[in-house]
């Protein structure tokens, strides 16, 4: 099988998966009892006429199949609908949320990867030493922590010292210099990013450690020692790159998942990202927002997996040709 054929196959598979996910999401949310109108019509003096008007406006009076076809047609035009709750286009709303989520999640994940690779490599290289026991047990402990619990504990410990919610100080007005805004966002990000990093780093440590132990037993590592190379070079030049191969898949899966999995952390720290938006959308039965949010998550997971495949092929010469 040649390379283009392989790529086409993967792309076709990805598109099919996205279609299936879109369909499932559409029907899944409509199975929930109640709809956006029941929620909105709870205002005092809501008349049956208002209810009818709202239902018609949202297109909820049409049959499920009709609604589905309209949704699909609009989606093909890049139109994700109008949010029931915000009365604004879903696309713009979600893009703004995504802009807040991605840097936070990325910072947390990158920090977790760096910490995980370091502690995993040291653990494997100094196997059975105090450093190994320390780092392995710490990793298992961190791995076992639920992120919402750890977030709460950090919140209790650092409330007052660090901002406990939101992404920026609302009272910091525009004339403030750029770096002051950046620093403000940075301090707001410490707790959510820290929570994300701490819960993710343990898993990376364990994977890197076991992968490294396997690689360190390989013949070519013995060859590298026989060549008279110092330990540091053997570990970083010969072993780590080979040990990182299984990490690529893991990181891609995690990144895709974390965009959605950050729901708990975003809710906890009121981080105005896509997770918080989806959380609110569920309680408001805001179908277009939910569908849009889930679509973005699906696409993120599939795209990152696709990307992982490409990176893998670049890293491992055995796959390339």
């Amino acid at each position: 099988m040649n390379r283009t054929e392989h790529l086409l196959k993967r792309a076709a598979f990805a598109l099919t998966t996205i279609f299936v996910a879109v369909t499932t999401n559409f029907f899944l949310f409509r199975v929930l009892p109640g709809d956006a109108v029941t929620n909105m019509a709870r205002v005092p003096h809501a008349s049956p006429q208002l209810k009818h008007a709202l239902t018609a406006e949202f297109g909820l009076d049409k049959s499920k199949w009709e609604q589905y076809l309209i949704y699909l047609r609009n989606l093909c035009h890049g139109d994700m609908g109008i949010s029931f709750a915000h009365r604004q286009p879903v696309r713009e709303l979600l893009i703004a949320d995504l802009m807040n989520t991605v840097p936070m999640v990325l910072a947390g994940t990158v920090a977790a990867i760096v910490a995980g690779v370091f502690s995993g490599v040291i653990s494997a290289w100094r196997r059975a030493s105090v450093a190994d026991h320390l780092s392995t047990n710490l990793a298992i402990f961190a791995y076992a922590l639920p992120s919402q619990w750890l977030g709460l504990v950090l919140l209790i410990l650092f409330a007052g010292v660090l901002p406990s919610g939101g992404m920026m100080n609302e009272f910091l007005f525009e004339p403030a210099p750029f770096w002051q805004h950046l620093g403000d966002i940075g301090t707001h990000a410490i707790l959510p990013v820290g929570t994300l990093m701490l819960t993710a780093y343990g898993g990376y440590t364990l994977v890197v450690r076991s992968s490294m132990l396997e690689i360190l037993g390989e013949d070519y590592v013995l060859t590298a020692r026989a060549k008279g190379l110092p330990a540091r070079r053997i570990v970083w030049r010969h072993a780590v790159r080979n040990a990182m191969l299984p990490m690529v898949t893991l990181i891609a899966l995690d990144l895709g998942y974390i965009v959605g999995g950050a729901v708990l952390i975003e809710v906890l720290f009121s981080w105005p990202g896509i997770g918080l938006a989806m959380y609110t959308a569920v309680s408001q039965r805001d179908y277009p927002m939910l569908q849009g949010g889930f679509l973005i998550l699906t696409v993120a997971v599939i795209l990152l997996n696709f990307l992982a495949d490409l990176v893998y092929a670049r890293l491992d010469p055995r796959i390339q040709r």
Binding site: E218, D219, Y220, L222, T223, A224, R225, A226, K227, G228, P230, H238, R241, N242, L315, D316, P317, R318
Partner: peptide, 25 residues
């Protein structure tokens, strides 16, 4: 004390040299 001697003075062809090469280089 051995490291400077390895490969400069005394080198080795390994048993099962099939896997003596790093697959990534």
């Amino acid at each position: 004390s051995v490291r400077p001697f390895r490969w400069r003075d005394i080198a080795m062809v390994f048993q099962g040299a099939m896997n003596a090469f790093n697959p990534m280089k």
